[in-house]
Design a protein around this nucleic acid. Structure first.
Length: 455
RNA sequence: GGCAGGGUAGCCAAGUGGUAAGGCAGGAGUCUGCAAAACUUCCAUUCGCGGGUUCGAUUCCCGCCCCUGCCUCCA
C-alpha cells in the first residue's frame, strides 16, 4: 500500500516516489503578511499540515518549507495607510499568523524563510536569467522575464500563450516586450524600501522569491510544491519558468493545489470582501471545529463555509469527544492503524474517507464499552487516527465544560438533584435539570454518576 | 471567448464497470423514574438531463443544461 498523489502538472494521480529514498522536500507558498489570515488561508495551512503529518507517518524525513512574503506593494501601501514602518507591520502580522495557525494545531514547518532575508539568492537568480537572455531590462528600468523565451510556459496550468493573449485583460505595460512578461526586479520609487542590485535600487517581484527560496532550502530539484489553486497561474507557472531557466531544468516534481473556501458558492477572497478571519471564527467556535470542518471535504474540492457547516462539524467532534470521555487510557501508540484509514490517506490524502473509518472505529468502541469488553486496541487506533488528523487533542472533560460556567455551582445542583432522585422526588429533580438546561447545561446520568456538559 | 473542475438523499460528503461509505438532521426501539449519551434499526431501486458502448454504468463515450474557478493581486 503506497502513497498516490494528484499531480497538477500531470493532471492525474500518480505514485509518489521521492527524489531521495526516505526524504521529502516540500515547499508551500505561505502568505503575504499585510493583514490577518482568513478562513481560506486556514484551509491551506490545515491541508498541508495533514499532508505533512501523513508523510511523516509514512516514515519520510520531511523538510517542510513555507515562506513569508514580507515585501510587496500591498505591504508598502498598508504600512503607509497605518503610518507605521514596514517591519512593524510585517512583524505584527507574523505574530498574528502564528497565533492563528498554532490555534489550528498546525505543526510549524522546519523552515519559514522571509523574502527580505533572501535578497542575495533572488538577485543571483535574476542575474542568471538576464545572462541567459530569459530576462531583460524594460524601458522603465524594471527587470522583466521574457515569457516567450521559455519553452513550455503554461504547462502547469494548461494554458497556451496565444490563448492567454487573445483573452487577456492585462493592460499593456510600458516597458514590456510582451504583455505576459512579469517583473523580476522592480525599481524603487522615492520612499519605498529598496535593496541594491546590479540594475539599481529596488525590490524583487513576487514570483522570484519562491523560486529562490525553495531552491536555496531544498535544492534545484525537490519533491513537492504546494499552495492554493489560485496560485497555479500565474504564480507557480512563473516560478517554474524562473527556476528552470536559471538552473537548467529540474524544480518541483509534484504540484499539489488545494481548493478554495467558498461563501454561498463563491470564492472567499480579500478582493471580494466576503471573508472571515480565522480569529473571527475562533471567537465563536473552538479552532478544532474549524479544522474538523476542513477535514470533512477532500482538499482539492471547494468547501462551502457557513455557520451551519461549522455546527455540523462541532456535532461530529462532540461525538468523538463523547467516546474519548469514555476511554480510560487515551494513548496514541501500541496498535496499528486500521487498513481502511491507511488506504484512504494513501489515496491522495482522502480525509473524508479516513474520517468515515474513524467513526466506524468509534461505533465499535462504544459498542464494546456498552458490552463491558476491553476496547484497548480500538481506543489506541482512535487516538492515533485523531493525532494524525490533528483533532480531538483537547481533554474531553474540558471540551464539554469549557466556557464561563461555575463548575462548583453545577456540581452542587447535581448533588441536590441526586438527593431528590434518591427521595423519588422527580418533580424537584426535573426542576433542577430544567434550571441547568436553561443555562445550556446538559446532565447525563451514567452508571458511575452524573456528568454535565455545555450544549 | 480560452482552459480547468464540479452537479450523489433534508443538509454536508466519499466512492465503484456489478448494483450507493461516513457525518449532521429526522423516525422507531433498547437503556433510563423521565431524559441525555450510547447501542439497535429505518431513512437515495438511485447518483443533473438525453443518447451510446456493455451481459451490466452512478462509474466509460457523445450531446445538452446548470454551477464554480483560473485567464489581473489572491491560500
Amino acid at each position: 500500500m503506497s502513497l498516490v498523489v494528484y499531480n497538477t502538472l500531470k493532471r492525474k494521480k500518480e505514485a509518489f516516489v521521492p527524489l531521495v529514498a526516505g526524504k521529502v522536500g516540500m515547499y508551500v507558498c505561505g502568505v503575504t503578511v499585510y493583514d490577518r489570515c482568513h478562513v481560506g488561508h486556514a484551509r491551506m495551512m490545515v491541508v498541508f499540515d495533514v499532508i505533512y503529518r501523513w508523510l511523516r507517518q509514512l516514515g519520510f524525513d520531511v523538510n517542510y518549507v513555507r515562506n513569508f512574503t514580507d515585501v510587496d506593494d500591498k505591504i508598502i501601501q498598508r504600512a503607509a495607510e497605518r503610518g507605521i514602518a514596514i517591519d512593524a507591520l510585517t512583524d505584527e502580522m507574523i505574530a498574528a499568523f502564528y497565533e492563528d495557525i498554532d490555534a489550528l494545531a498546525c505543526i510549524r514547518p522546519r523552515h519559514e524563510p522571509r523574502a527580505t532575508a533572501h535578497m542575495d539568492e533572488m538577485i543571483a537568480m535574476i542575474a542568471k536569467l538576464v545572462a541567459a537572455d530569459y530576462a531583460y531590462v524594460g524601458a522603465g528600468g524594471d527587470v522583466l522575464y521574457a515569457v516567450r523565451n521559455f519553452d513550455g510556459y503554461g504547462k502547469l496550468s494548461g494554458k497556451n500563450i496565444d490563448d492567454l493573449e487573445s483573452g487577456s485583460r492585462v493592460e499593456v505595460d510600458e516597458g514590456k516586450r510582451d504583455p505576459l512578461d512579469f517583473v523580476l526586479w522592480k525599481m524603487a520609487k522615492a520612499g519605498e524600501p529598496a535593496w541594491d542590485s546590479p540594475w539599481g535600487k529596488g525590490r524583487p517581484g513576487w514570483h522570484i522569491e519562491c523560486s529562490a527560496m525553495s531552491c536555496s532550502h531544498l535544492g534545484d530539484s525537490f519533491d513537492i510544491h504546494g499552495g492554493g489553486m489560485d496560485l497555479k497561474f500565474p504564480h507557480h507557472e512563473n516560478e517554474i519558468a524562473q527556476a528552470q531557466a536559471a538552473n537548467g531544468g529540474g524544480f518541483a516534481r509534484y504540484w499539489l493545489h488545494n481548493g478554495f473556501v467558498n461563501i454561498n458558492a463563491e470564492k472567499m477572497s480579500k478582493s471580494l470582501g466576503n471573508f472571515f478571519t480565522i480569529r473571527e471564527v475562533t471567537e465563536k467556535y473552538h479552532p478544532e471545529v474549524l479544522r474538523m470542518f476542513m477535514l470533512g471535504t477532500h482538499y482539492r474540492s471547494p468547501l462551502d463555509f457557513s455557520d451551519a457547516a461549522l455546527d455540523t462539524a462541532k456535532a461530529g467532534l462532540d461525538r468523538l469527544y463523547e467516546t474519548k470521555r469514555r476511554i480510560a487510557d487515551w494513548q496514541a501508540a501500541g496498535a496499528d492503524l486500521p487498513p481502511a484509514f491507511v488506504s484512504a490517506m494513501n489515496d491522495d490524502f482522502n480525509t473524508p474517507e479516513a474520517l468515515a473509518e474513524l467513526f466506524e472505529t468509534v461505533r465499535a468502541i462504544n459498542k464494546g464499552i456498552d458490552a463491558g469488553q476491553d476496547v484497548g486496541a480500538a481506543a489506541v487506533q482512535m487516538a492515533r487516527m485523531c493525532a494524525l488528523l490533528g483533532i480531538v487533542q483537547q481533554d474531553a472533560g474540558l471540551w464539554f465544560q469549557s466556557g464561563d460556567v461555575d463548575g462548583e455551582w453545577v456540581e452542587a445542583k447535581i448533588t441536590a438533584r441526586n438527593q431528590a432522585r434518591a427521595d423519588r422526588d422527580f418533580a424537584r429533580a426535573d426542576a433542577i435539570r430544567d434550571e441547568l438546561a436553561g443555562k445550556d447545561i446538559i446532565l447525563e446520568d451514567g452508571p458511575s454518576g452524573t456528568t454535565w456538559k455545555k450544549a
